[in-house]
Computed example of a mutant assay.
Amino acid sequence: MSDTRKKEIILATLELAANKGLGNVSMNMIADKVGIKKPSLYNHFSSKEELVEVMYQFLSKEAKKTANIGAIDYTTFFAGKSALEILRGIVKGYFNMNQQEHMINFYKVIYSERSLNPVAAKIVAEETDRMILATKQLFYAMEVHKLLHFKNPDMSAVSFAMTIHGLMDYGLDQRNGQYRFETDKSLLDNYLKWFCEEYAA
């Protein structure tokens, strides 16, 4: 499957799901929206579930590329920065990735479906797992560089990741799905300041 066709199918599915709800979108509807026959769609994706999982991978990859998020060299990234500046930078990058239009629409669909749709629930859980793992790696590095100190870095990472997730959801709810990092960050910034004071090295 060409990348162009793949993107076309994914974005058509996302648009339909955002308007009708994922559970109300059929493979027939997706094929009609793209302008292909249903058997042709099945040549690309064996099921709607597979399509949704590929959609998540594709949109995440595109969002990371747009937000310029990649592997981090912690020694370089930490150089000359305070713990607060580091956490602000990491969190802002995460928010910038997730507030892109396609990602916002995808999360609206997935979050509304997760209590009913096992694939949606799996995607939300996997995203949370990835965020917790990335936070653990960050905290281990901050401990080694004596920027912060944790009695239990694993549990501190879980607590931090889940709080950031919760604050992000709260901001989205307040703005009806349109989080504005620069204008809505006071609560988040107060949390980051408190966190750095609490775990100061």
Rank of each mutant, 00 (worst) to 15 (best):
I69T: 03
Y94N: 00
R180V: 14
L138E: 01
A200V: 08
N176K: 15
M131T: 11
Q178K: 15
A12K: 08
N176H: 15
S82L: 06
M55I: 06
E85L: 07
T76G: 00
V158R: 05
L147D: 01
Q99W: 08
Y94H: 03
A83P: 10
Y170A: 14
G93I: 04
T128M: 05
A134Y: 00
K122P: 04
F45R: 05
T183N: 11
F181Y: 15
S40T: 15
L14P: 12
K136T: 00
V119P: 10
K33C: 10
M155I: 09
N96L: 14
L192W: 09
D73T: 08
Y140S: 10
I72L: 10
A17L: 05
S46F: 03
I86Y: 05
V109W: 09
Y140L: 08
K185A: 13
D184S: 08
E101M: 09
N98W: 03
Y111A: 11
H145I: 01
K92G: 02
F58L: 07
E85K: 11
A79Y: 06
V119I: 15
L116V: 04
K81A: 02
E182L: 09
M155Y: 09
L14K: 10
S47V: 07
D73M: 04
L138A: 04
A79D: 13
R180D: 15
S46R: 12
F195I: 00
G35S: 07
L22R: 12
M131C: 04
I90F: 11
D189W: 11
F160C: 05
K37T: 12
T75L: 08
S115M: 11
E85F: 02
M97R: 15
T135W: 00
N152E: 12
L41W: 09
M97K: 15
N24F: 10
D189S: 13
S40Y: 05
F160W: 05
N68Y: 03
A157M: 00
R114I: 00
A83T: 06
A17F: 11
I9D: 01
A161L: 03
N28H: 07
A12Y: 02
L41A: 09
I36G: 00
Y107E: 02
A17K: 01
F77D: 06
F58W: 11
N28Q: 13
K38S: 01
H149C: 09
D184F: 06
A83H: 10
E127G: 04
G35Y: 00
L148V: 04
Y199V: 05
N96S: 13
D169I: 14
V119S: 05
G80C: 06
A121Q: 13
L22K: 08
L187D: 10
V54S: 01
L59T: 03
T183H: 07
L14V: 11
R114F: 01
R130Y: 02
E101P: 06
P118C: 09
N117L: 04
A157Y: 00
F139K: 04
T13S: 15
Q178R: 14
V119R: 02
